[in-house]
């Protein structure tokens, strides 16, 4: 009888451990990542500064445009590397950087294709849209569960 009680206790403990392991392995979304947060805030500032300069012809800022495009790509690849549980953040970066879209990626393409400075009214509008887009990424990342 005594041996039966001794057997029962470890079994319940094992069940608890199994439950914890299952729950820990079933997260719906990735946790907070300071690297992702920093990339979003840094690139937001860099993008908005470049947009302010877009009254000039793009040829005057060719190096900055290319640098920003590379950093956007790196950020997107980093988010892709986290797997399917990171799909919300990954898709946000994809929309922001899509060259066929109408946010940052599309703006860079438009500026270069037209090969001329953009109007102040347009730059004010695109700056607002791009800033809001980065804010969505930053908002999601900052709300993720911290370890």
């Amino acid at each position: 009888m005594r041996a039966g009680i001794m057997d029962w206790r470890p079994r319940k403990g094992v069940m608890g451990i199994v439950a914890v392991v299952c729950l820990a392995g079933c997260a719906a979304i990735t946790g907070y990542d300071p690297t992702s947060y920093k990339a979003a805030t840094d690139l937001k500032a860099e993008a908005l500064i470049l947009i302010e300069k877009a009254q000039d012809a793009p040829t005057q800022h060719a190096a900055a445009i290319e640098s920003l495009r590379i950093k956007l790509r790196k950020a997107l690849e980093y988010e892709k590397g986290k797997g399917d549980r990171n799909r919300f953040s990954r898709e946000l970066w994809e929309i922001l950087s899509d060259p066929n879209g109408s946010l940052l990626g599309g703006f860079l393409k438009k500026w270069e294709t037209e090969n001329k400075g953009q109007s102040p009214a347009f730059l004010e509008g695109i700056g607002k849209n791009v800033g809001d887009a980065f804010d969505r990424i930053i908002e999601l990342e900052s709300h993720k569960v911290k370890d």
């Binding site: 919300f88 898709e91 946000l92 929309i95 922001l96 899509d98 879209g101 109408s102 946010l103 599309g106 703006f107 438009k110 347009f122 509008g125 695109i126 849209n129 809001d132 887009a133 969505r136 990424i137 908002e139 999601l140």
Partner: peptide, 18 residues
């Protein structure tokens, strides 16, 4: 272009809420 940007932002808003 700006109006289409708002449509992209609407998609981002929905993803953020999800």
């Amino acid at each position: 272009f700006l109006v289409k940007g708002k449509k992209d932002l609407a998609r981002m808003e929905a993803l953020t809420q999800a």
